[in-house]
Design a protein around this nucleic acid. Structure first.
Lengths: 216, 216
DNA sequence: CTTGACTAGCTGCTATAGCAGCTCTATCAT
DNA sequence: ATGATAGAGCTGCTATAGCAGCTAGTCAAG
């Protein structure tokens, strides 16, 4: 495996490399990130690292204080609550918006993704394969609203979710989720009523929250 | 007026100076921001400017493309719709959360702010004084949830709102708003029922949206 | 007059070097 | 033995300099 693929810019390379090391757990929660060490790590100079660290801070993966430095975000209960509330806010509004703007073809795209997701959950359980599909599904919903802010917000939510999953490292157990865990969302959207779609996705998000907290 | 006050860091100084020039309209929508010119403008070197531009991009005030540069965000109808949907998402969830966590003392703090806001709207109309208080009110709501992500999201929403207001530059007309325009939100929160509080704030946000679009 | 190439000046981007502050250790004096 | 102090090594931060690419403007050839 060669990590030094050619990216568009050195900042991008530093960002990707450092992010990967955080998401994989190689850089543990609370670990301090020295600019010089990150520069050596990613094979670039300090300036691109500064930019990369800012982007990581925007993503919520690290925290910076002026004149002090950066460290990997510690996933306290408070931060997890934060994330879940934020996710609930975004996803509910996404669902409401989709009831008004989504055409039938796009609805079918979402439905197919939901079906596959539920099948994987039943067959393999909540493992890395499931997480990948889940992220893609929710990202697709955000994308279909046509709103950049929702897409960006969902990207951050998913990144944080991966970090949380790495910290928990729970094994995949098949059949834990209801068989129509994601199809319920589709049915909510198909009513074309904002309140019903919102209720469906809120149920989905809040239960995911409860399950995550139980794992810790 | 001396803009070269001592900030904690050169990046901070550059960020504040450039942001002010954008919010005041001195740097017009669509104007290209050269790193060197911004450096000369704010009296610092290029590196702090790079950092400042990234923060401004995070705020949504500018847009950057790799190997191309930065320009002040153009407030297209699409972007405004984006912002309003995002604001609706955040504020509704903030209201829901507050019905569960807010104690009576904090509720009274919000009420006092709402009362002052409604009085100003009746007396002076929707001018710069009103906007300042309005930003403070909504920021306070976000702050009282105890969620950093909501606070940051609301900060971005308010910044964007200022930019929008500058672009419109509508004169202040007293009495345009209902007399209890913000007190309705407080009444919603006081029911201690998430759905009712959400409905109250959604009505508030959506109507503000409709009014803003009418101005353009 | 048109068209092509070349130059000068802009742009974003990044490597190097060096400043100021902090922390921790090792040495020295009491 | 204990305390203080000097120094070495780290840290974040930023100014300078220089590379590569794009753009426009000019000058010369057809």
């Amino acid at each position: 495996m060669d990590n030094s693929e050619e990216f568009t810019t050195a900042s991008e390379r530093a960002y990707r490399i450092i992010r990967e090391k955080i998401l994989s757990g190689e850089l543990e929660a609370g670990a301090r990130l020295s600019q010089r060490k990150m520069a050596a790590l990613s094979g670039v100079s300090i300036i691109p690292v500064i930019e990369a660290l800012l982007r990581l801070e925007h993503d919520g993966l690290i925290e910076q204080r002026p004149q002090w430095g950066a460290r990997v975000t510690v996933l306290s209960d408070e931060r997890i609550r934060d994330l879940c509330l934020f996710r609930e806010a975004i996803e509910c509004q996404v669902a409401r918006t989709l009831t008004e703007t989504l055409d039938d073809a796009m609805m079918d795209v979402l439905k197919d993704m939901a079906v596959e997701l539920d099948e994987v959950a039943q067959a393999e359980g909540v493992g890395s394969h499931y997480w990948l599909l889940d992220c893609a599904f929710h990202a697709k919903m955000a994308e279909l609203t046509g709103s950049r802010m929702f897409v960006d917000a969902m990207r951050r939510i998913n990144l944080f979710g991966i970090l949380k999953q790495v910290a928990a490292a729970s094994p995949g157990v098949p059949g834990i989720l209801p068989k129509d865990w994601h199809m319920r969302i589709i049915r909510g959207l198909r009513t074309r009523e904002a309140d019903k779609a919102e209720a469906a996705i809120r149920y989905h998000v809040q239960n995911a929250f409860a399950r995550d907290m139980a794992h810790t």
